[in-house]
Write a protein that binds this DNA or RNA. Sequence first.
DNA 1: CGTCTCGTTGAACCCCATCAAAGCCGGTGG
DNA 2: CCACCGGCTTTGATGGGGTTCAACGAGACG
Lengths: 224, 224
Amino acid sequence: MYVTISNEHKDQAFYEQTTETISHLRPIRAACGKHVFREGDKVDRIYVVVSGAVKLTRLLEDGRRQIIAFGFPGDMVGFPSHGRHHTDCEALTTVQLEPYQFSSLESGTGDPVLHKAFVQAALREIAAMQDHFVMLGRKSASEKVASFLETMAQRLGEPVGNYRQFPLSMSRADIADFLGLTTETVSRTISLFRKSQVIALDGAHTVVVLRPDALHAIANRDRG
Amino acid sequence: MYVTISNEHKDQAFYEQTTETISHLRPIRAACGKHVFREGDKVDRIYVVVSGAVKLTRLLEDGRRQIIAFGFPGDMVGFPSHGRHHTDCEALTTVQLEPYQFSSLESGTGDPVLHKAFVQAALREIAAMQDHFVMLGRKSASEKVASFLETMAQRLGEPVGNYRQFPLSMSRADIADFLGLTTETVSRTISLFRKSQVIALDGAHTVVVLRPDALHAIANRDRG
DNA sequence: CGTCTCGTTGAACCCCATCAAAGCCGGTGG
DNA sequence: CCACCGGCTTTGATGGGGTTCAACGAGACG
């Protein structure tokens, strides 16, 4: 949820099929901290994340920031509005992106398989954003952070011993701007989870989920 | 902003063109309070609002509710995820909806003009939701309510004397669930605007914008 | 005219933001 | 290799914006 595309990698099919169909466009790389595109840029291509991670952000004039989504491998990013990008896209790590010519995707004049995958990706994006609405509008800080960690674990987690572990490639400030909180609250909440043995940290950017059930309970019920 | 489709009715073209192209499906009506569809329903058609208004809602198990969007004339509602509706859709007033067979829209096998309009609507939906994220995540109560009133005025406002006036067809609770606030806060904030002569009310459900500039200022700068 | 739902207003509390400062880590250069 | 530096993270103390609980008012409808 609230990830650009879906957790279900059935649609890995998208990437596999399409690289064969029209990979006229070479994969691109962006170093950590670099922008892939910026709000207002004309959209001639959209991207599928191959490796690494990106963040999609929107700014208010006064500097307040909202992160719309993170993009992980398999996610499609860069859906345009009126031919323009509507967010900034910045690399969280060194990232590889597979570009697709947008005009052919949009019009349906190009490869129909590719086109359908594009439409499906857009529809999944809408659904994911709807879930994120509920989180931003109606969940407490604990619920938000727990939901976020749970999603990340599902998305990026790998078994290590008896537990699942995953990297948090983004900063606390990024998490805060994604969840509509402050860095301090995010940090405090994560510390709380650590102290109550729900998760463990290895450095600030590697999380081990010790009690997935507890995490899930906090994500969906708690009010503190 | 944060309306299902767009304020720009250039794409009124969609409705006009398509009613001629395949109006095999008759417009449907729903009375105030009735559901058009529910979360989980199989999607075989999506709708364009012709007259009246609907709300799209998502529920948490414990009863907390988030309104994803309101649908006004010209808006397309019912984008599916994995073939299912992902929100409830309920009529706020008596509403007329123009249904479109979804299968033909999705696959691109049907009318290409219609298909392209569908894709454009989905992309606008994504952009609108991105704006709403900023509001839910980063704006204060006053900013939220002012932004909402401003958008409604742009969308539904009609000149009355020297001012613009519009109907608030939804309840205070609906507005609260849309903005991520409580009914009390919405009511208090609206009262504040009324007392400071930014707006006037005629009953609880008709708003007159007295000072659009002030409303805009509150929507974008204020921190109270 | 009575009832009922919705809206408004008041008072108290609490979660989270804000302000502040101390760790911690990675990087850099001596 | 180590000491210093700068940014990020963590933790603490305090205050405020919005929720919560509660009661009153007002319009809608029979």
